[in-house]
Amino acid sequence: MKDDSELVEQIRSGSPDDFAEIVRRHQSRLFAILSRYERDAHKVEDLAQETFLKAWRALDQYDARRAPFEHWLSRIAAHVAFDHLRRERRSNDEITMSDLGESALEWLHSENTESRPEAADAREILHLAMRQLSPEETMVITLQEIEGRSAKEISRLTGWSGVAVRVRAHRARGKLRAALIRLEKGRP
């Protein structure tokens, strides 16, 4: 089986349909990444398609000596996700406490500090709290806390300096905690 860089070479030398194999190889990982930024399945698919189209257009710029293909693709996905966050912030869709499901509200107001929320409830709560964060802050929290990436990896993916990543992560955590405290008290 050919590796990614060999496939890319083949595509560049006039075999465009081989790009379908690249898509098949990386689609699941890409969907997993983009699902962190968007809950709607159709929108996740649109974002994944946008990522692959951008990769296709920039394929001539890919240099296998500098990074594995999946790192290069992840960087494109991170930029697509960031643009998506910015577009979402510009839209006027207001999310309020009433959008939270009953079980999510129950966990928020529960006295039991040891209980773990259901994944969907946690997602709803974080999504609502992150509305208070800038796209940069949402991005850094998602990459660091949810995807479990290091500051160095975040820097590589976003193009931000290491210092900028650490400062944004620190500020974002503070703002997120404040937003979650407001939610606990019943004020979004």
Binding site: D17, A20, E21, Q27, S28, L53, A120, A122, L126
Partner: peptide
Amino acid sequence: KLFEAVRGERAVQPAEDFAGRVM
């Protein structure tokens, strides 16, 4: 706990003909 719960959430799965749509 919130972060851990979200980490465990199942991601959206690509449709079977997703690669075809991209092409």
